[in-house]
Write a protein that binds this DNA or RNA. Structure first.
Lengths: 248, 248
DNA sequence: TTATTTTTTAACAACATGTCAAAAAATGGC
DNA sequence: GCCATTTTTTGACATGTTGTTAAAAAATAA
C-alpha cells in the first residue's frame, strides 16, 4: 500500500521538477511575460489545471525557483565560513561566495530581481515570503558572524558605526554592483568591464578605511583569494577563471 | 484656428495629467497589479479606449511617471554642481542630491524598481527606454565631471582603478542602499535605522580610503553638508530634517 | 469484478488587453 | 446657421489569461 502510494507520489514529485524546469526554460528564453500556466502545461504535456495542484499561481513557481537557487547560495556562504584564517580573510571568503554564486548561476540572480518586485511579491503566500526572508537572513548572518569575530579578536574597532551598519555597507555595495550589472545598463561601454572585481576592490578599500586588520598594504589578499578558491571552493573555481583585482 | 485647435489640445494635455495622477494614486494605494486601463478610465471618467490615445499600455504610463520623476532628480543633480568648493565637497553635494531626492519623493523611487523589471521593460518603446537611459546617463555624468575635476586639480590620484570604476563604486553603494531600503527587508530591525546616512558614512570612508583630498580627518564635512543644504538646496531642506552621520 | 478514493481534465466565469468601425463632437467653408 | 469634413471618443469584439469546479479517468483496495 505504502509502496503503491509512494510510486504515485514519486511521479508527482517528478512532475514538480518538470514544472520548474519548464518554467526556467521559458523564463530564460522568453521572459516573464511569456510565462503562463498554459505555456508550461504545453511544455510538460499535462492539462493546465494539473499545475494548479502544485502551485496556486505562476508567481509561486518563480518563488520556488528562487528558493531553490537561494539554497545553493546559502550553501556557498556556509562553505565560505569553513575557511580558517584571520577575520579579514574570512570576510573576503564570504564576499567571494557571493561573487562565485553570481558567476555560477548568473541567470538565477535575475530571478531575485523578479521576486523583489511588489507586483509579484503581493501574490506570494506568507510561507514563501518567510522562506525567502529566512534564507536572506542566513546569508546576512554569515557576514555578521565574521564581523563579530573581528570585533572579539580585536581586528577591528568600530567607533562611528555599529557592526550592523558595517554589514549593511558591504551588502549594499555587493547588491548594488550586481543589480547594476544585471540591469541592462551598458557598464562595459561606461568603462567598467568587470563590476564584481571592481566591487571587491572597493570593499577592500572600505575595510582598509575602517582599519580592519590586517589592512591590504600589510597583507597579500590576492594570495588569500587564491587560497580560498583552492580550498573551500576548489570544485567550483576549477571551471571559472577569476579576474584579479588590480592592486596598487 | 490655431486658437481653437490649441484649446482642444490643451484639454488633451490636461487629460494626460489626469491619467498620470490617477495612475499614481492607484499605484501607491493598491499596487501595480491593481493598475489597469479600466481602473484608470473609471477614475478619470473616460472610456478605456481613450487612454489608448495617450499610452499604448499601462507599462508606458509607469514609464511616463518614471521619466517625470527622473527629471526632477536630474534637476537636483544639476543644482548640486552649482555648489562651489573643493572637488571632494562637490562630490558630497552630488551624493546629497541623491539622498535628498529619495527623501523628497520616497515613493517615486519605487517606480524605478518597477521600471528595472524585465517584464515591464520588454513592453516599452525604444523611445521611452532611450529617454530613461539618457536621464540615467546624465546623473552619472554629474558624478563623472566631479571625479574628472578632482583628477585635474590633483585632489585624487587613481592608481589601481579607473575614474569610471570609482564612479561605479559610489553609484553601486548609493543604489544598493536605496534598493535595500525600498525593498521590504526590515532594516530597522536589523539595526540600520538610517540607511542613507549610513551609506553616506561609508562613502566618506571609501573616499578617504582612496585618499581624495581633503580627507575627512582634516576637514569638517558635516559643516560642508550644512553649507550645501543651506545654499543650493535651501528650499528643499527647509522641510526636511537631515540626520547627521555619526563621526568618530 | 466492483466500490471507493485519488488524480486529471474539460468547461466555465471573470477579467484584462488591444483594435476598429461607428457614433459623437469639433472644425471650417459657405 | 447649415452642412461637409475632420478629429475625437466610445462601445463592441476577438483574444488570451486566470482560478475554480464538477465530471471523467485512473488508481487502489476489497
Amino acid at each position: 500500500m505504502s509502496q503503491a502510494l509512494s510510486r504515485k507520489q514519486r511521479e508527482i514529485q517528478q512532475r514538480d521538477h518538470l514544472i520548474l524546469d519548464a518554467a526556467t526554460d521559458i523564463l530564460r528564453q522568453e521572459g516573464f511575460n511569456a510565462l503562463s500556466m498554459e505555456r508550461i502545461a504545453q511544455a510538460i504535456e499535462y492539462a493546465r489545471a494539473t499545475i494548479y495542484q502544485h502551485y496556486p499561481n505562476k508567481e509561486e513557481i518563480v518563488a520556488a525557483l528562487c528558493i531553490r537557487s537561494m539554497r545553493s547560495m546559502v550553501d556557498l556562504f556556509d562553505r565560505a565560513l569553513e575557511f580558517k584564517g584571520r577575520s579579514r580573510e574570512r570576510i573576503v571568503a564570504v564576499m567571494l561566495a557571493y561573487e562565485l554564486y553570481w558567476r555560477l548561476y548568473p541567470n538565477d540572480m535575475q530571478d531575485f530581481q523578479v521576486i523583489k518586485n511588489e507586483a509579484i511579491r503581493s501574490k506570494l503566500s506568507e510561507a514563501s515570503l518567510e522562506t525567502i526572508s529566512s534564507l536572506e537572513q542566513h546569508t546576512l548572518g554569515c557576514i555578521a558572524s565574521v564581523v563579530r569575530e573581528a570585533l572579539a579578536e580585536g581586528d577591528i574597532t568600530l567607533t562611528d558605526i555599529t557592526p550592523e551598519e558595517l554589514i549593511f555597507g558591504l551588502w549594499a555595495m555587493a547588491f548594488g554592483a550586481i543589480s547594476l550589472h544585471s540591469s541592462d545598463i551598458p557598464l562595459a561601454e561606461l568603462g567598467v568591464s568587470n563590476p564584481m572585481a571592481t566591487a571587491r576592490a572597493h570593499a577592500r578599500r572600505l575595510l582598509d578605511g575602517y582599519n580592519w586588520q590586517p589592512t591590504s598594504d600589510s597583507w597579500n589578499y590576492d594570495k588569500t583569494v587564491n587560497q580560498i578558491l583552492n580550498s573551500v571552493f576548489a570544485k567550483e573555481s576549477a571551471n571559472i577563471s577569476f579576474p584579479k583585482e588590480k592592486t596598487a
